[in-house]
Design a protein around this nucleic acid. Structure first.
Lengths: 215, 215
DNA sequence: GGCGGAGCTAAGCGCTTGCTCACCTTCCGG
DNA sequence: CCGGAAGGTGAGCAAGCGCTTAGCTCCGCC
């Protein structure tokens, strides 16, 4: 079915289970357009990006976009939906692994941060272009976000119950932890000094200090 | 000159030294346009806001904007410049007050957070519309941002030198602290459960835990 | 008491935007 | 060998954009 025999996968250095970046977007042309849109939205923002710009980056004519997507907003929605699903999957996987609350929290934070740093263009679109979505699509994504919140809050509650954490304000601290991780997408620079792994480790340590019980 | 005799100041409940929100913008019409622009940019983003929208909110015709500002981008630049100056002033004032590094850090974080929460519409424009500025204007603002970084890094260094803090990675922790504070502008909601003061206190506590030396 | 300039508006210019449509390929089952 | 769907293009439409301009009103000043 795929037009070219050659593989055009960009190796992104994530876990082995991660495959091709946007492999789930099935018609090859639709995938190319979506990848181009992610790059454009991340660089300039949704409203400053034109459909001609997206099509141009994908090496196609502007009209081609409307064969695979009804509107520019639907394209953003597809990106947001898949991106949020991925981020939530990364977070949940870490949270569900066995271990002490401290180990699970460190794992969750470092994984989540690694995703936001490594896929920072996707993450930027997903986290910062929410308001460009239609009200219905926005509501759908906000619901996913509540799930992320629940995952982190769950770990904190477990740690408090086990006497391992000292967290006076669990909802507030959950908010702070997620905010810290998400904002990585804003400032992370590929040409900067830190790798996604280093930032993940640093942040896991900082978050553990935030919640650790004083002995 | 002003049409109505009544004062239209919105009381914003900041420190007494803070006066009218955008008092330094001198022709009254220019101030009204700028206030309208802040509201519009914060709500929809710079690129999704039209000059007609700004003028409409200010109760004027679209052409009036170009009497006081050369372009829409200059309006954004004025907002960014003044906003960053204010935020940096708040941060520096707290950092320069006498006290232990711990006290100064707590004071700096709570003040900075209070500003980002209380003036969250201004902060949102200032922190998240940086890329809409022209390269020259952008560079100017980035320079201001480096000053904020230096202020926080200075406190951390002092605390480490005094043996009060345990911070293995000072630049990285500086980044995290500032990121945490700045991102408040993104999620803070006036109709939410927390007041700016409460968030400031919570965050000051969390940051102190991040850097505290283990006894 | 007429004058000049500052402040503002109605109208609109030139251009770009999201999106459409008539038409052209390519490919595959009968 | 051919008919028709699927996927793509060039040209372009209506609407909206940032910004300009001609002209009006108001007011301090000689």
């Amino acid at each position: 079915m795929n037009a070219t025999g050659g593989t055009t996968d960009e190796t992104t250095g994530e876990q082995p289970g991660d495959e091709v970046p946007w492999g789930e977007v099935t018609p090859e042309a639709a995938r190319k357009l979506l990848v181009a849109a992610v790059a454009a939205f991340a660089e300039r923002g949704y409203h400053a990006t034109t459909t001609r710009d997206i099509a141009g980056r994908a090496g196609m004519s502007p009209a081609a976009l409307y064969i695979h997507y009804r509107t520019k907003e639907e394209l953003l929605h597809r990106i947001s939906r898949i991106g949020h699903d991925r981020a939530l999957a990364v977070l949940s996987a870490a949270a569900d692994r066995p271990g002490t609350p401290g180990e699970r929290l460190a794992d969750a934070v470092s994984s989540f941060v690694r995703w936001h740093a490594g896929r920072h263009d996707t993450a930027r679109v997903v986290q910062y272009e929410l308001d460009a979505l239609s009200p219905e699509h926005r509501a759908e994504i906000v619901e996913l976000r509540r799930s992320s919140d629940a995952v982190v809050r769950g770990i904190l509650r477990d740690g408090v119950a086990a006497g391992e954490f000292d967290v006076p304000d669990v909802p507030g601290t959950t908010l702070a932890v997620l905010s810290l991780c998400i904002d990585v997408a804003r400032w992370f620079n590929v040409r900067g000094r830190r790798t996604p792994e280093e930032v993940g480790e640093l942040y896991a340590d900082l978050v553990l200090r935030m919640v650790a019980a004083r002995p």
